[in-house]
Design a binder for these strands. Sequence first.
DNA 1: TCAAAAGTGTTCAGCTTACACCCATGA
DNA 2: TCATGGGTGTAAGCTGAACACTTTTGA
Lengths: 233, 233
Amino acid sequence: MTHSATSPCFPVTVETAIFTLFQRDLKVCLFPCNQPPFEGSWMLPSVMPAETESLDDAAQRCIFSIIGAGSDSESDPFFQQLYSFGAPDRDPRGRTISIAYFALVAKDRLPEHILDGTNAPLAWHSAYRPPPLAFDHSEILSYALTRLRYKIEYSAVAFQLMPEEFTLRELQDAYMIILNDQKLDKANFRKKIREANIVEPSNRFRETGGRPASLFRFRKDAKLEIKTRRFFP
Amino acid sequence: MTHSATSPCFPVTVETAIFTLFQRDLKVCLFPCNQPPFEGSWMLPSVMPAETESLDDAAQRCIFSIIGAGSDSESDPFFQQLYSFGAPDRDPRGRTISIAYFALVAKDRLPEHILDGTNAPLAWHSAYRPPPLAFDHSEILSYALTRLRYKIEYSAVAFQLMPEEFTLRELQDAYMIILNDQKLDKANFRKKIREANIVEPSNRFRETGGRPASLFRFRKDAKLEIKTRRFFP
DNA sequence: TCAAAAGTGTTCAGCTTACACCCATGA
DNA sequence: TCATGGGTGTAAGCTGAACACTTTTGA
């Protein structure tokens, strides 16, 4: 009921599903796993919290160790705790408890050599059709995808995956890729974005195949999360 | 990046916010805390996971240790993992990592001596106006309340707080208490419930001050979670 | 016959959806 | 002048909020 006198201890890890968007696909950052029996599988990046480090700090260290600390905290990636996984047999080497996070990084925030995998074991794989994953990491990944999809529908986190400036078509593409829904109506999508008041034009344009597209950026003061009554039906 | 060779260990606890509904109020189960410097404060019930026990099993054990194991698993309370708390200073006695759960129990599932607190340190307090709580438990409680409110809006978990049979008025009261909103329109609420197709009449009635009210029960095959496109605005 | 509470139908505003249309550019 | 993609207006249909109404019981 209350804390017992003896304190069994558990190794604790923080695993992070880091997402980014390129090649018209949602990508997740993976490392090759060498541990038997998972040779040839891939795994999510992970760290162990230091003695005096909070879970969030550990997750942030995990992310920065991959993408590098930014020059300004403005462009720091969004991250959020997901769920904790503690099945006794999740790691055959011994029991560990894993606190899972997910993170969103804009492609232009990633150094070139991290994006293309030059000179690093890390690789970006399709989040929807990932290679075989070690431990329970495919469970973690699919949970992260579900949460990302939920979150993108009631908040504006999508902008965390966009570059500094973007066209509305590019934003719509991001939504369609993440929601796996090609049926979003262009006019209605634009109206929603306009009325939500979360972007402003930069008065610059991007060359496309046809009429040039206005570039937008997210407003610093935008309301990012809105809750409305829904009930179940 | 990957698992390091040395494995720092952390004491891990599972804390559970157990909610029930009576006296027209949402109640949470608390225990007195004797640990300095929190004498006089209250705390959420907690257990430490055993060596080979999953986190969910530990949470279930925590719940059953209070309300007793049910005769049939049908009436087992609903519970769900919430969030993990790991601030280095959350417990002044030493660092622990806490996996928080919340649970919903129907009042008629609680034995009489648990409800009225006879001969037990446990007590039920208003979840909205709780007494002083030890550690970071007020943070855990307010997080649990937020999640409960979200969840009740897009799913039918409310029925976990209802007795076997109930009137629609009683169900509406449950919603109004949890959402802290007295303005729910009776006609519209009933229409929603009817169209959601989640209850069926038991063909019995409850005596009230006026016209007797039909009793309903939840349908076993009801769809409990429905997701609709929402976006942010 | 009146008070109290159950239970229902109808209207109106606002939002979502679908779709048609115009605009600006390069070839 | 045509193809391509950007950008907008509007009508139909659905949903939710508000509210007035009827029904059934006990006193």
